[in-house]
C-alpha cells in the first residue's frame, strides 16, 4: 500500500507564511479533496507533495515513485498536436504508448487529437493533460482544480473516472472550489485555511453545511450594517 505522511510541514514565500506545522497522513485507494479559499495554499500544498518546491519539514512518500501533477493552468507547446503531446509526455516518463487505451479514454473526453493543441480551449487543454497523466499510470495523481473549465458532461465523466481509478487502487488528490462535487467523490477532505491544513474523513457533508451557514450569517451581518 502506498502512503503519504506529512510531518511538521512549513512553507512560506518570503516573509508571508502559507503553511505552518501541517501534519497529515493519507493512503492509496482514496480520493483526497483539498478545499480552501483563494490563495490559502492548496496549490502550494500539492506542489510540496509533488516535491517541486522547497519546504521545511518531512514528506514521506512510501512506495511512490512517479507523481503526476495537473496544474491549474496547464502549459502546451506551440504547434504540437494533441497526439504528439501525449506521445511526448509518455516518452518523457519512459512509458510506451498504448494506442488502444488512449482511444478508449479519449472516447470519454472526445478530444480532436490530430489538431494543434494550442488551438484547444482551456477545458480541452485540461482534458489533454489529464489524458496524458492517466496514460502514464502514476503512483500518485495530484489534480489542481481539474473541474475548472470543463463542461457539465466532462465534469461528470471525470468524477466517474476518478471513482473508477480509486476502485482500482489509485492514489488521488483533488483541489477544487466546487465543494459539492468534491464531497461526492472524496474519501477525505483537507481544509487548507489560516496557514494550516486539517483533514476530515467523516461527516463530509457537515463541512458544506458549515460553510453555507457561515456565509449566510456573514451576508446577514453585512446587510444589517
Amino acid at each position: 500500500m502506498r502512503e503519504l505522511t506529512i510531518k511538521d510541514l512549513y512553507k512560506s514565500y518570503g516573509s508571508i507564511s502559507i503553511l505552518e506545522n501541517v501534519n497529515l497522513h493519507y493512503f492509496s485507494g482514496t480520493i483526497n479533496g483539498l478545499i480552501g479559499s483563494n490563495g490559502a495554499g492548496k496549490s502550494t500544498l500539492l506542489n510540496c507533495i509533488a516535491g517541486y518546491i522547497d519546504y521545511r519539514g518531512t514528506i514521506e512518500r512510501k512506495h511512490i515513485e512517479s507523481v503526476g501533477l495537473l496544474t491549474a493552468n496547464p502549459y502546451i507547446f506551440p504547434r504540437v498536436t494533441g497526439h504528439e503531446f501525449i506521445r511526448f509526455a509518455l516518452s518523457a516518463k519512459n512509458r510506451k504508448e498504448d494506442t488502444a487505451r488512449l482511444y478508449q479514454l479519449n472516447a470519454l473526453f472526445e478530444l480532436p487529437l490530430n489538431r494543434f493543441a494550442d488551438e484547444y480551449s482551456v477545458g480541452m487543454l485540461k482534458k489533454l493533460h489529464l489524458l496524458a497523466l492517466l496514460l502514464q499510470d502514476n503512483d500518485l495523481l495530484l489534480l489542481d482544480e481539474p473541474f475548472n473549465g470543463l463542461d457539465i458532461l466532462s465534469s461528470a465523466y471525470l468524477s466517474e473516472l476518478l471513482l473508477e481509478l480509486k476502485r482500482q487502487g489509485a492514489f488521488i488528490f483533488v483541489s477544487s472550489h466546487n465543494i459539492s462535487q468534491l464531497i461526492k467523490i472524496s474519501d477525505t477532505l483537507t481544509l487548507v485555511e489560516n496557514d494550516t491544513a486539517v483533514m476530515k474523513s467523516d461527516s463530509l457533508t457537515s463541512i458544506e453545511k458549515e460553510i453555507e451557514e457561515n456565509a449566510k450569517s456573514k451576508v446577514k451581518k453585512m446587510l444589517k450594517k
Binding site: 509533488a50 517541486y52 507523481v67 503526476g68 501533477l69 496544474t71 493552468n73 496547464p74 502549459y75 509526455a89 518523457a92 516518463k93
Partner: peptide, 11 residues
C-alpha cells in the same frame, strides 16, 4: 513561463 517550468519539472 511558470506553467512551462511546472510541466517540464514533472519529468
Amino acid at each position: 513561463r511558470s506553467e512551462k517550468v511546472w510541466l517540464l519539472k514533472q519529468y
